[in-house]
Design a protein around this nucleic acid. Structure first.
Lengths: 198, 198
DNA sequence: CAACCCACATACGATTCGTATGCGAAAGGA
DNA sequence: TCCTTTCGCATACGAATCGTATGTGGGTTG
């Protein structure tokens, strides 16, 4: 059975709504984005939106999901290029801080996401970044590279530190300079998790 | 000159509105809290609210301010009881994680605050917790206890780690057990900032 | 070809916010 | 003492927005 044309256009409209929502949420924030304007910009009406996403939160969830997957892919690509696993983790952390500099990610994923969807780890997307960090930590603990630390806790704290660093950098007057300070502090802090931090 | 009675009652009404707002924001979240219900619960109307706080965001700012000061006082009290400054900082970090377990603090200060008011460090209250952490770090760097790290960056990252740990703990099924794991990981992580972490 | 289904549009009611205006009580001067 | 002004707050109004309930047209199925 070949997919019907109706289905194809529906997927298309879903994608167009998500794209329009990314723009609107990033610019005005979730709370101040009008769904009438949003859907009109996509050439549709609220009818399509409620049919595809249930409600406004459903649309936000879909948007966060999409961005989250993109973030995971980009971070993964950076980590894969480095052989030493610890250095790879540090690079991913730095990359994560830089990622959060993008207004879209900051506004939607870091601010509105937790506020309106709740704890990121319980999102369907499972916050992919955190997930990969956790498995990486688990491996290094097994290898004795890292001290015997709870992998989930370590991943949580490192991500939290990076996240907050990103908010700090983004709000500063001189992002480039502050970015370097943040990354340096991140490396120093992470050192504590090594088996032989000296 | 004695204060006029009108002023006294006005301060009283301000306080009553803030108290009602704390309850409403904590229970329903900032976005879903109705100002009509809010003010009615305080025995007033929206007129008083707009007169005292300008708009809804102004009320949120006042609420966040009040809670933030309470948090700083409680953390300070814990840190003051410990002589060794490093151990005091660790204790404050742990206390901060525990503080964030309270739904009121979590919902209002950690989720809605950043989402609707922007970066915490630029709030009028200046996020007192972070401020004291920063000065503490500065002293220890000068004493050679801590490695030569940027005090602002270190304070930012430590607070971020603690904040995220708290969100994690609060969302978990067994908060007490997870709390211990979070605090242990926090201490291990922070070790990296010491001059001699071995 | 007729009945049906589905994706989406339209119409409507219910909240909620911000502002503009009204009112009563206290303060101050003649 | 009386009149006027000020101030804190209530009331009234308009605008915006969300969710639901209903309508509709093109494609599908029997």
């Amino acid at each position: 059975m070949t997919p019907r044309k109706r289905v194809e256009t529906m997927e298309e409209n879903r994608a167009r709504l998500i794209t329009a929502a990314r723009r609107a949420f990033a610019e005005k924030g979730y709370a101040n984005a009008s769904m009438d304007d949003l859907t009109a910009a996509a050439g549709l009406t609220r009818g399509a939106l409620y049919h595809s996403f249930g409600d406004k939160r459903g649309l936000l969830a879909a948007v966060v999901n999409q961005i989250d997957e993109e973030m995971a892919a980009r971070a993964q690509a950076i980590g894969d290029r480095i052989d030493d696993e610890w250095e790879a983790l540090m690079a991913v952390g730095a990359a994560y801080i830089e990622l959060a500099l993008e207004p879209e990610i900051q506004r939607i994923v870091l601010l509105d996401g937790p506020a309106f969807l709740g704890d990121p780890l319980q999102w369907p997307s499972q916050n992919s970044c955190l997930q990969s960090t956790q498995t990486s930590v688990r491996r290094m603990v097994a290898q004795g590279v890292m001290a015997p630390v709870d992998p989930e806790a370590a991943a949580r704290l490192m991500n939290g530190a990076a996240l907050n660093a990103a908010l700090w950098v983004a709000a500063s007057d001189d992002p480039q300079a502050v970015l370097q300070r943040a990354i340096d502090a991140f490396r120093l802090l992470s050192r504590g998790l090594l088996a032989r931090p000296g």
